[in-house]
């Protein structure tokens, strides 16, 4: 770990004062401290934001508002979340371990870094960690890596479970900077790696996530998050699916679908949503709708199974959701 200065901020304004590329905001610390120990990130200043008033989970006519410093475990346990947005609670509970969920914040979860083993090993080339050094994963061990949204510079998978249902539900991220506040759709908050995989989102160096708003929607209450992985707990997704359906009788009138574990960012599947809408909620519909879910996928040596697994994951999630009614 490189030496750094530590300061505790008591207001958003204080936290942002002097913030720049060498500043890191410390919330739960579950990603930051880990990566600092590995010297993957080496901030000069660490600003502890845990005392900022960025908490609270509220539900109103606009939707669900969650403060950036709310802990994953608290949000997962919140009655409004469980009742109206079950797939958010499920995605949180299938993340990490109980100990990590007790520490990790919602804002930090959205900013967590990839689990790519080369990103975490400072002795190997990695364009995300060290721009221009090359990508070891392209021809390395890439079983867990992304197949969608990849580039020749990076195939690192976006690791967040929570971001998958949030993207499906058109969540907005609220940001604050010394210039004021702005709100950005989560879907466009994340950027594709392209030739600059070190840039992962539109957050500016002097900007802080203050909270998120998940719109109120009739379909969110009938939703499900499915996570597929080798072991049953404490592992990142090989694939995951957030699915929400609004039905009239047997007909799907609205669908929200996103996938995790397959993309360089959480992957909204609007084509699948369209293919489901207006059709009966039957296995045949599900099978047909996911046919093109992984179109454009660029598998590598060890993750060639992911397009098929993604389609199967989606069908299973839709089937489980349908059967759980």
């Amino acid at each position: 770990m490189r030496p750094y200065t530590y300061a505790q901020a008591r207001s958003v304004r204080e936290a942002l004062r002097g913030a720049g590329p060498d500043t890191a905001f410390l919330a739960g610390g579950t990603t930051l401290v880990d990566l600092m120990k590995l010297e993957v990130v080496t901030p000069e200043r660490v600003v502890d934001i845990n005392r900022l008033p960025l908490d609270g989970v509220t539900l109103d006519h606009k939707g669900l508002h969650i403060g950036a410093l709310e802990r994953m475990s608290d949000v997962a346990a919140h009655p409004a979340v469980r009742q109206h947005y079950p797939m958010i609670a499920q995605a949180l509970e299938l993340s990490a371990s109980a100990q990590l969920r007790n520490m990790a914040s919602i804002g930090g979860n959205l900013l967590q870094r990839t689990r790519c083993g080369y990103f975490r090993d400072v002795t190997t080339p990695c364009n995300k960690r060290e721009p221009g050094s090359g990508c070891s994963a392209l021809d390395g061990i890439n079983r867990g890596h992304a197949v969608l949204g990849t580039s020749d510079a990076c195939i690192a998978t976006h690791p967040s479970d929570l971001a998958v249902p949030l993207v499906a539900l058109s969540t907005t991220v609220h940001l604050a900077s010394p210039r004021g506040t702005r709100s950005v759709p989560l879907d466009t908050f994340y950027t594709l790696p392209g030739s600059t995989p070190d840039v992962e989102n539109v957050l500016r160096p002097d900007e802080l996530i203050t909270g998120i708003t998940v719109p109120r929607s009739p379909w969110a209450a009938r939703s499900l998050y499915l996570k597929v992985r080798d072991r049953q707990s404490y592992e990142f997704a090989l694939t995951s699916a957030a699915v929400a359906l609004e039905l009239q009788g047997r007909t799907i009138t609205n669908a929200r679908i996103a996938a995790g574990g397959v993309g360089t960012r959480p992957w909204r599947l609007t084509a699948v949503e369209r293919a489901l809408t207006g059709r009966p909620a039957t296995p045949a519909t599900f099978e047909a709708a996911v046919t093109h879910a992984a179109d454009g996928a660029q598998p590598r040596e060890h993750n060639a199974f992911k397009p098929a697994l993604l389609r199967r994951t989606l069908v299973r999630a839709l089937t489980e959701l349908q059967e759980s009614r």
């Binding site: 689990r115 083993g117 080798d230 072991r231 049953q232 707990s233 404490y234």
Partner: peptide, 11 residues
């Protein structure tokens, strides 16, 4: 131990 998987209680 996040990348080299051993069974957890759930398994």
């Amino acid at each position: 131990l996040a990348d080299y998987l051993v069974p957890v209680n759930a398994d």
